[in-house]
């Protein structure tokens, strides 16, 4: 496996590999996400208790679980970069942070728009909501640290340490609904084996979830490429790539 993985440790190979998969991933993401959204909005049945407000579920839950999943991925990348001095891991961690922050924000906002009609309040300082808000601040802190230093290696180290300390928040978010009394309802999807959801609701959820996963991969690939270029700006291959890009732009302009 290491032999197979080895070429991808080269920034140039990774850069071109990410560039090649972006078009495929974007087409799949657009397709699956549109199916998921239309299904969720128009064809999925209304909940017998929550009525049509339940349709918020189809973006709230994927966004919330992705906000935690991306953080976990970022923590793995930060760990690899701190322990094995693997430079590309830093670039990928820096690429993931803004994506995760966006999904955390979406989870919080849609959650609050769901909470207003169901609980009668936009916001409450309960365990699930507060720990998710802390996750947003962790993401913002990581992003700020990545941008705070001119030296990207130093920035990666500082942001990596914050990322690893923040991992403690993930189990707190996950189990907050079980450990504390909270307004937030328990998990519906991730009960292994028998999700407490009807099939007509599970399918559109799956489409939305995997559509979001694909979209996340597309955006991370785009940002990963920028991070690689910024970190390798003095390498000859980046130089030739940039000048080729400029001449192409000039001919397009003419």
């Amino acid at each position: 496996m290491w032999k197979w993985l080895h070429p991808y440790a080269n920034p140039e190979v990774s850069y071109h590999f990410a560039g090649r998969i972006i078009p495929w991933l974007s087409v799949c993401a657009a397709l699956i996400l549109s199916i998921g959204f239309i299904w969720a909005l128009a064809f999925a049945p209304a909940d017998y208790q929550q009525g049509d407000s339940f349709r918020i579920f189809y973006i709230h839950v994927p966004a919330a679980s992705l906000s935690m999943g991306i953080y976990f991925g970022m923590a793995v990348a930060a760990f690899t970069s701190l322990v094995w001095q693997f430079k590309l891991a830093d670039a990928s961690a820096a690429a993931m942070a803004p994506v995760g922050a966006t999904f955390t924000a979406i989870a919080l906002i849609t959650g609050s728009a769901w909470g207003k009609p169901m609980w009668g309040t936009w916001w409450i300082w309960d365990a699930r909501l507060t720990s998710e808000l802390i996750l947003l601040f962790l993401y913002l802190g990581v992003m700020a640290l990545h941008n705070a230093f001119e030296d990207k290696n130093l920035a990666g180290k500082a942001a990596g340490i914050l990322t690893l300390v923040g991992v403690i928040n993930l189990p707190i978010i996950k189990y907050s609904v079980e450990w504390w009394n909270t307004l937030h309802q328990g998990s519906t999807v991730s009960k292994l084996g028998k999700p407490s959801m009807s099939i007509e609701m599970l399918w559109p959820f799956m489409f939305c979830f995997f559509g979001f996963v694909l979209l996340v991969s597309v955006i991370i690939c785009i940002r990963f490429r920028s991070e690689i270029l910024a970190r390798n700006s003095i390498r000859p291959w980046v130089r030739t790539l940039v000048s080729a890009h400029l001449t192409k732009e000039k001919t397009n302009a003419v």
């Binding site: 049509d52 349709r55 973006i59 966006t102 979406i106 849609t110």
Partner: peptide
């Protein structure tokens, strides 16, 4: 079913934030 504002607010915010990203 009466929840239009909240549902469309959620979908709108999600789409706008993702487009911005």
């Amino acid at each position: 079913g009466g929840y239009g504002f909240y549902v469309w607010l959620s979908y709108g915010v999600a789409v706008i934030l993702l487009l911005m990203l």
